[in-house]
Each structure stands twice: as structure tokens, then as C-alpha cells.
Design a protein around this nucleic acid. Sequence first.
DNA 1: GTCTATACGGCGATAGAC
DNA 2: GTCTATCGCCGTATAGAC
Lengths: 229, 229
Amino acid sequence: MNTAIKRQQAPSREDRRTRILDAAEALFSRHGYDGVTLRAIARSAGVDVALANYHFGRKRALFDAVLLRRAEVMNARRLADLEACLEEAAPGRPSVEAIIRAYLRPLLTIPEVHEEGWKNYYALVAYVNNSPQWGGILMTQFFNPLIDRFIDALRLALPDARDEDIYWAYQFLSGALTLTFAQTGRLDELSRGLCRSDDLQAAYEHMVGFVTAGFERVCRADSGTPAGQ
Amino acid sequence: MNTAIKRQQAPSREDRRTRILDAAEALFSRHGYDGVTLRAIARSAGVDVALANYHFGRKRALFDAVLLRRAEVMNARRLADLEACLEEAAPGRPSVEAIIRAYLRPLLTIPEVHEEGWKNYYALVAYVNNSPQWGGILMTQFFNPLIDRFIDALRLALPDARDEDIYWAYQFLSGALTLTFAQTGRLDELSRGLCRSDDLQAAYEHMVGFVTAGFERVCRADSGTPAGQ
DNA sequence: GTCTATACGGCGATAGAC
DNA sequence: GTCTATCGCCGTATAGAC
């Protein structure tokens, strides 16, 4: 009724919440947690200073809310892809490559993946992941349940691997992934335009090969860390 | 004369410069560029606010100076290791693994590598590399001449590789490397203590295998990016 | 329940006094 | 140069409008 005659009406509760999250996401991804004020977020979102506090509580809780919003979407998609991959292989073992594809593909098959919001989110995750302040706490908080499932699948695919080798390999995957999807433009500079940071399709194809080969090499039964260097 | 009778004397010019750089390095690595004020740096270094400005100019120039100080040391070592590696292989081709070792080994053979200063620097480089604000500009500014040499060596080791494949693989190496040396503690959490972020030796050994295999896979002549996914 | 206006104590920035 | 007065912005809390 009311909604039917809305035209240039004031934004709804959800509109405002979303705009605060969007503004916070953009600003945190550019300036880091300590480089952003609640007032700057409110100004950018076009709302009162106190509104972010009302909806999300303290600054730190808003930071969490920004991360959670898209992490939930992404984790659900990845989990579905992983389960499909395991089901397809059953009762045999899945291949490492199939698992890596299930982990990476959702990052670029999100329909709105080229919108600013997702791009900002990817940059924010890269910031969080690489920060000694946030990395240990927040990556664990938002991604551990999902990653534990992927590690389990990798144990299945690599039955002779030692756990520590799988964890180290995952660490390298994580670094390559978050840097690449942050789309910093660095690659464009280095390659003098030959590669484009925002070519997520090319990033995905290359990363699948690189990471799969890396896991297979590091997790070979004979690939120990010998006493020497 | 004066210097001879110094005991608990005021720190020298170089002492102060160094302390400003150390303080800036620590604070920038924790809070990002926008999260740090010149006053916070001065306070942490125990010097007057105006002194940072006197020695280094504007805030941005101080940021550059922090990065440059250790980048120069690291780049010189890497270049020496690369040249030794090429010489050893001449007139044949160097192996991919030997080149990767020359690129990574200097990161942990720095004698003072476990001091706070280097640890902060590694975290700072991870921040810069992953930042859409800084990544494109500063990584190019401080590391391009060196990396061009390594890319040349990799072209030699992988004569059939396409340039774009080498650049993508380098991007993944760069992400894995900067995240790992940032030592965020994330890996310790995920592996429940099985792996330790500050075990640089284990990081190095695993990374060499992972990255070498990744380059070899991605740069195989037949490893195209086919039209489909 | 949703939101605005405003206030508070704290700290950083600037500039004039010494 | 160093000190300090003052101003403005910080995160957060709260009272009250709607």
C-alpha cells in the first residue's frame, strides 16, 4: 500500500543499513580499520552519525558485519560446490584439481562479481588476511568452518600427505588468492599491460593450475623438509 | 672530543633518524598509512614532532623512506644470489627451482631476520602489496628492476613459456610470499598449532616446492587458457 | 522500533607566547 | 625550539522526535 505509492520516498530501514555497510566496506578497504572514522562512513552513506551505532553497535562490530555479509554468501556457494564435487567422485577420491576449482570458482561466478561492492570486499579480505592485527582472529572467525571442510577433502584426495604440508600449501593458496582478487593493478604495471588485474577468468584458470601443482608437489609422501636447508 | 665523553648523552642525529624509521615502520605495519599520525610516530620514537618532517619531509616521503631502507638491502642480496645462480648454470639453463631459491632465500638468511624490525617490514610489504591504493605504485617503485631480472631468468629456464603465464605465476608467488612472511598467526590458528607462522625455515622449504611446481605447470607449452572455463 | 540531535571526554593539529 | 591555549574531530552515549 504505502510501498505502492513510493516514488522519491525516504529510504527504508534496510536501504539505510545496506548503504552504511556499502560505505563502510568501500572506506575500510581503501584506508584500513584505523584510517576510517564512523563520521566518514556516515557522511559517505548520507545518514546521521549515530545511525551506524544504532544498527551495528561499536565500530569493531560494524567491521565484523561488513565482512560477514558477503562471507556468508560466498561460503554457502563454496560449500555447495565442494559437496557436489565430493558426490561426483564418490565412492572414489576427488581430484585435487576438482577441489581447488570448487574453492575458487564461486569467487567469479557470483553474478554481480564486477560490481564495486564485491571488488571492495575482495580488497578488504586481502587487507584482513595480511594484517597481523586481524588475520589470525578474523579469518578464523569467518572462514574456518568452511576451510576445515576443504582441508578434509584435500586429505581425501592426498591420502599420503602430512597434515602440516597441507596447511602450508593452503597458506600459499590463501596468499595468492587474496592478493589476486584484490585487483591492485600491480600485475598490469609489472607486465606492462600484458596481463590485466580485473581479468578474473584468466586469474582463475592460471590459479587452478598453479595451486593444484603446488599441492601435489608439497604433499608428495617423499617431499619432506629434510634436516638441512 | 664531545663524543668521547658521551655516556647517557642525547642520541645522535643518526640515532634519531633510525628511531623515527623504526617507529614509523612498526606503526605503519600495524595501522596502515592512514591510521598513523606523524605525532604518534614522534611520540613512539621519543623525538619532537617536527623532527620527522625535518629529516624526511612530508608523511608520504617518510613512508617511502621506511620501505626503501630495507628494500635496498634485500634487493642487493637477491640480485647477488640470482647472478650466482645464473653463473653456476652457465652456459646451460638455470632450473626454475634454483631461481626461486635465489628469490626467497635472502628473506631468511638476513642475520637479524628475527628482530622486530624485519618482521614489521615484512608485514608492511604485505600491506602495501595487497593495497589497491599502494600496490600498483609502490611495489613497482621499489621492486620492479629486481623482478624484471628474475622474470628474465625464468624466461631462460622456461623457454617455451608465454610471458603472460610467467607474469600470472609471479603474481601467485608474490601473494603467497608476502602473506607468509607477514607472520599473521593465521596459520597457527587454522592448523591448531601444528604449523607456526614464525617458522621461516619451514615456510621457505614448503614455498620453494609449491612455487616451483606451480611455475612449471602454468608455463607448460600446452597449458593454455582455453576459450571455455 | 527507527532515527536525529546533541553532548561528553579524549586526543591531534595549529599557531601564538615565551 | 619548546610550551601551551585553543579548536575541531574522534568514538560513543543518550534523550527525545516520530
